[in-house]
């Protein structure tokens, strides 16, 4: 039976990281995001002055829901596995963040085998997806052509974070706890500056996309058999 992590006898740095630094990083990220959202909102929204050809509301809804409808786009219809990759990877990130903020105060409750297996399962799959995405980014010329160091750096770090999540889930080692929380804390500081912050802009962009194409009647797309 593996040794169990004693949360009451953590090294001072681990304790500081898990109970203090982690939240300072979160506060920093919230401030950075607030500034970013404010800087976006203070700019004028594009205006459509002509009579609308379509329904804005339905189109905006459609634009947002496209994310969850791989059947709606030719690209994801043909490469459905890419959409599954995308979905699992992003869900795993959300679970990873949730775990990072739940574990410090609910670690006892999270020792249940179902929760441990769930974490290990989703983090493990996400780590594999991360590796496959990294391989794709390195081996495909079209991906290399558009990648910045940040793209590689984020992907490597997220993959390692997911891997450490697998190891940390059973709460058996302070090393893995330290690894997992170190990376989580680093991300909170780094994310506002990296491409990972794309999800802050995403709602604005999808909203505009829906509004614009909805105004012109292009969204929601009509499903035509075979088209």
């Amino acid at each position: 039976m593996p040794a169990e992590l004693n949360w009451h006898e953590l090294m001072p740095f681990t304790h500081l990281l898990v109970h203090n630094l982690h939240y300072i990083a979160l506060a920093f990220m919230v401030v950075a995001y607030t500034i970013k959202i404010w800087s976006i909102l203070k700019k004028p929204a594009a205006r459509e002055g002509t009579p609308a050809k379509g329904d804005h509301k339905k189109a905006i809804q459609y634009s947002f829901l496209l994310l969850a409808r791989p059947d709606e786009m030719e690209s994801t219809r043909k490469q459905w596995y890419r959409w599954i990759e995308f979905a699992v990877f992003h869900v795993a990130m959300a679970v990873g963040i949730a775990v990072a903020f739940t574990m410090p105060w609910a670690h006892e409750a999270m020792k249940g085998s179902f929760i441990v297996y769930f974490q290990q399962g989703i983090f493990g799959i996400a780590a594999l997806i991360g590796i496959s995405r990294l391989v794709r980014r390195i081996t495909r010329a079209d991906m290399r052509a558009i990648s910045t160091p940040d793209d590689y750096f984020c992907l490597i770090l997220l993959t390692l974070w997911m891997g450490s999540g697998v190891m940390n889930a059973p709460q058996t080692s302070e090393f893995w706890l330290l690894s997992y929380f170190s990376m989580a804390t680093f991300f909170l500081f780094y994310v506002p500056f990296s491409k990972i912050s794309h999800y802050i802009c995403w709602p604005f962009m999808r909203y505009y996309m829906g509004k614009h194409f909805g105004h012109r009647g292009v969204y929601p797309k009509k499903r035509i058999a075979g088209a």
Binding site: S39, A45, M143, K195, S197, H198, M205
Partner: peptide, 16 residues
């Protein structure tokens, strides 16, 4: 300028 172009400038996930 308009909000949307600013977001185009700040966000591309380089998914290809």
């Amino acid at each position: 300028g308009p909000r949307v172009l600013k977001t185009y400038m700040e966000t591309c996930v380089k998914c290809g």
